[in-house]
């Protein structure tokens, strides 16, 4: 029996096409698996959360064929927070059959055609490096500032809703920074103000910290590595250093253009 099972599993994997393609029942089973194993980052409806990309988009950064999706789910994506199947602490490992069911579910919520970018990406780029001044703090493909997260892949890794929220109310959910292996929660882009023993004050973002030490970048992009007990004071805030871009600073149209730029870059 074991031998037969293993052979069947190999057969499932060997095929590049989902054996349950278009099977509504499989999609329903896949939804349960998705909620238990994937929704933690990708949101309940697969439309992305604060942590993972919107999977209802037709375009996917790590490939959109059945075989690509299977590989991404089963093996994870190195260098990202996407773990191999079964390696999360929240979910259990899925069988290959269950992975195909999840793929059926993703197909069932996926929009039919690649969305035509609503905005003007070229204008978005101008805003990014120009009047909107995003590049003061954010880098894209090696160009820009260092204080905020690198946005080269953010367009592919986050839902549009999340991108809008990040610009309109950046303190609502702070962006995530370093993710350490085995550490449950990633460091967030918290704001920190320290005063050293000699009275020097630094304002910046937390790159990482533990109970005893702090690693930060100040607003002039200088790294500072502190032992907390040697500081005169240390104050953290969840009020992001990123200014909230309201309608006056960035119209809905311009916001759409910046997002179109982020999506265009992310798709590369």
């Amino acid at each position: 029996m074991l031998g037969a099972g293993a052979a069947a599993a190999v057969a499932l994997r060997a095929q590049d096409k989902n054996p349950f393609a278009g099977d509504a029942k499989a999609a329903k089973l896949g939804e349960s698996q998705f909620r238990a194993n994937c929704a933690f980052c990708h949101g309940l409806g697969a439309r992305g959360g604060g942590r993972g990309p919107d999977l209802s988009r037709a375009q996917k950064h790590h490939g959109n064929s059945d075989a690509d999706l299977f590989r991404t789910i089963n093996e994870g994506v190195p260098g990202t927070a996407m773990p191999p199947n079964g390696a999360t602490q929240q979910g259990v490992g899925m069988t290959e059959e269950e992975i195909w069911q999840v793929i059926s579910y993703i197909r069932s919520v996926q929009v039919k055609a690649p969305a035509q970018p609503a905005g003007n990406a070229a204008h978005g780029k101008e805003l990014f490096y120009g009047s909107a001044a995003c590049s003061t703090c954010h880098m894209i493909q090696g160009k820009g500032g260092r204080l905020g997260p690198d946005l080269s892949t953010t367009g592919s890794a986050r839902s549009t809703d999340y991108l809008v929220e990040s610009m309109r109310s950046p303190s609502r959910r702070l962006a995530q920074g370093i993710s350490e292996a085995m550490k449950e929660f990633s460091q967030e882009y918290e704001t920190v103000t320290v005063v050293t023993a000699d009275g020097t004050k630094f304002l910046g973002v937390v790159l990482n910290e533990d109970h005893f030490t702090l690693q930060m970048m100040d607003t002039r992009e200088q790294l500072h590595l502190f032992e907390k007990d040697k500081l005169r004071s240390l104050e953290k805030s969840r009020e992001s250093l990123m200014p909230a871009y309201d309608q006056k600073t960035l119209s809905d149209k311009d916001l759409e253009d910046v997002i179109a730029y982020l999506l265009a870059v992310g798709a590369q």
Binding site: R35, A36, A39, G50, Q90, L174, F185, E188, E190
Partner: peptide, 18 residues
């Protein structure tokens, strides 16, 4: 033999930081 949670849960970001 299959996972049987009947549910999903994820961190409530409104309560962050944890």
């Amino acid at each position: 033999g299959h996972a049987y949670y009947g549910s999903a849960y994820f961190p409530n970001d409104d309560a962050a930081p944890f």
